[in-house]
């Protein structure tokens, strides 16, 4: 009998919190349909904590050891990630990136809940629930806007004139990927085509999975500055659905000794929050896109 109740409460601690959180995400999405896929603190921080707290309520009488709570919380996190994949259509790589946050926040919620529902501590910690509620509502309705620029440079043993044509457009990159996210399936840049070598021309950056970024050249200062705006980008469920690349730029500086410093700049708008976590990933991915392209330009130019 006790064993059955134990099993039932244990199971409910997995089921109910995930259903509740999924319902909140669904309602929030329906009410904020104009947010165009922006994912904010409340979804990544507050909801996992809430998930942990609700599960702790079902497990409150089971006298679980810390190790067990941690194990169950990890299972709960995996269920939440799986549900995000199925119902929210998040990409696998995006979920790999978000998983450490989910693990830690679900665990935090489970231990907050453990203390809240401890029998010797009957006073419900209303302040924590209120704090979560206020933060969730205010975060959901507030404006989220974050833009950043990543710059990288390499030195190429060639003149700006020799490098320039490879900067504007280049043949397929054949080198194997070194960056671990590219290796596990994140699309990497493969080739660039251009409609003409002049200001206003169209440019296409083609990625390994066939996705194409449509670009328009807005500065065409031969042998010095190629700047292009991204006019259309694929809305992939992976990380690319959560970041808007806005502008790219290649600057060439003649070093006067037969070498040229090539600088690659990218401007992007991040659509996932908290910034302190996701911008680390965004910078890393942008940097590796830069380096893959710039290393290829270097190889072509030094032939």
């Amino acid at each position: 009998m006790i064993s059955e109740e134990f099993k039932s409460n244990k199971l409910l601690g997995f089921l109910i919190p995930n259903i509740v959180v999924l319902a909140i995400v669904g309602v929030n999405k329906a009410l904020n349909s104009d947010s165009s896929g922006v994912l904010v603190y409340s979804q990544f921080v507050i909801l996992p904590i809430l998930l942990g707290i609700i599960s702790a309520w079902f497990w409150r009488d089971l006298a679980l050891k810390t190790k067990t709570i941690l194990g169950y919380s990890l299972i709960n996190s995996f269920i939440a990630i799986l549900l995000s994949y199925v119902f929210l259509r998040e990409g696998v790589i995006c979920l790999i990136i978000v998983s450490p946050l989910i693990f830690v926040f679900v665990i935090t919620g489970a231990f907050i809940g453990k203390m809240m529902f401890k029998k010797k501590n009957q006073t419900l910690n209303v302040s924590i629930v209120s704090l979560l509620l206020i933060a969730f509502i205010s975060d959901s309705i507030s404006d989220h806007n974050y833009e950043n620029m990543v710059a990288d440079e390499i030195v190429i043993n060639a003149s700006p004139a020799k490098i320039w044509k490879n900067v504007v457009a280049f043949e397929k990159i054949e080198q194997p990927n070194n960056y671990w996210l590219f290796k596990i399936g994140m699309p990497s840049p493969m080739a660039t085509t251009v409609t003409d070598y002049k200001l206003g021309a169209g440019r296409k950056c083609i990625f390994s999975n066939g996705y194409v970024f449509d670009e328009k050249i807005v500065t065409f200062d031969v042998n010095k500055d190629l700047t292009f705006d991204i006019v259309a980008q694929p809305q992939d469920p992976e990380i690319m659905g959560h970041i808007d690349i806005q502008r790219g730029q290649f600057l060439l500086k003649d070093n006067g000794n037969g070498t040229t410093t090539l600088t690659g700049n990218s401007w992007y708008k991040l659509k996932v929050f908290p910034i302190w976590y996701y911008d680390v990933w965004a910078e890393s991915i942008t940097r590796n896109v830069h380096l893959r392209v710039m290393d290829h330009i270097k190889e072509l130019s030094e032939k």
Binding site: K67, L70, F105, F111
Partner: peptide, 22 residues
């Protein structure tokens, strides 16, 4: 919540590295 989240990170690390401590 930052301190609590950091402490959860410590718990998770201990769970992986030396779970008997828990």
């Amino acid at each position: 919540l930052t301190a609590l989240i950091f402490d959860s990170g410590l718990k998770l690390w201990l769970f992986i590295s030396k779970s008997e401590k828990l």
